[in-house]
């Protein structure tokens, strides 16, 4: 056997695989949205999507892993209740399409599940937890290009924290959250983290 080089440790960030539900810990930092706020925001987004789309016809919700996936499911549930019919929901992993792929250690891939009907000629609503630089959404648009050709693509996010690097804008926003660049916005969701909340931490303040 030969000497092995040190194993690179992937940075713990939101793009990593979340495994199971970890016990809910006390939120670090200032809580800006609690569970009820999140629930109300998602209900409003569901209605806004239906209003804009004039119903649930041809709608496909695609969550961006990991945070966007449970959010997309929750919005889909709310739409299903209002429209009394199920709405297609899936997930879209953008790891391979990231522009910073080469600058970081390789990341684990996350599930991509395209609903059975596909996305051709559908109205796809991308769902993510936090809109920040816009680079994830750019990657998602590229990833979608390889899956099919939707009639239209919309963007729904729980939190828009500003500081865009690219000309990308959300169509449906849970909460606009003015932040400083050095602050961290963290979205926790019951399905992944065992509790629902959005917190801001760090920064000079």
């Amino acid at each position: 056997m030969h000497a092995q080089p040190a194993k690179p440790v992937p940075p713990p960030d939101a793009g990593d695989t979340a495994v199971g539900a970890t016990p809910p810990e006390e939120p670090a930092g200032r809580v800006v949205l609690d569970a009820r706020d999140i629930s109300r925001a998602l209900t409003r987004i569901a209605h806004e999507i239906l209003e804009r789309n004039k119903g649930a016809a041809d709608l496909v919700l695609l969550g961006i892993p990991t945070g966007g996936v449970p959010l997309a499911r929750r919005v889909a549930e709310r739409i299903a209740i209002v429209e009394e019919r199920p709405v297609a929901v899936g997930s879209l992993d953008v790891t391979m399409y990231r522009d910073d792929l080469r600058m970081r250690p390789p990341r684990a891939l996350l599930p991509t599940e395209i609903p059975a009907g596909g996305i051709d000629d559908k109205v796809v609503v991308l769902v993510d937890d936090v809109l920040f630089s816009g680079r994830t959404i750019r990657a998602a648009l590229d990833a979608m290009n390889d899956v099919g050709r939707p009639r239209a693509v919309r963007l729904a996010v729980l939190v828009d924290r500003g500081h865009r690097d690219l000309p990308i804008r959300a169509d449906f926003v849970g909460k606009n959250l003015p932040t400083a660049l050095d602050e961290t916005v963290r979205v926790r969701l019951g399905e992944i983290d065992g509790a629902d909340d959005v917190t801001i931490s760090g920064g000079a303040a």
């Binding site: 040190a6 194993k7 690179p8 440790v9 940075p11 713990p12 960030d13 939101a14 793009g15 391979m96 910073d100 792929l101 080469r102 600058m103 970081r104 250690p105 390789p106 990341r107 891939l109 993510d128 937890d129 936090v130 809109l131 920040f132 630089s133 994830t136 924290r161 050095d182 602050e183 961290t184 916005v185 760090g202």
Partner: peptide, 22 residues
């Protein structure tokens, strides 16, 4: 091939820049 080649060969610091993946 993906895991060997796609990322940077240099191990990056474990402290990632905040929210860079969003």
């Amino acid at each position: 091939l993906y895991l060997l080649l796609a990322g940077s060969s240099e191990p990056t610091l474990t402290t990632s820049d905040p929210g860079a993946s969003e």
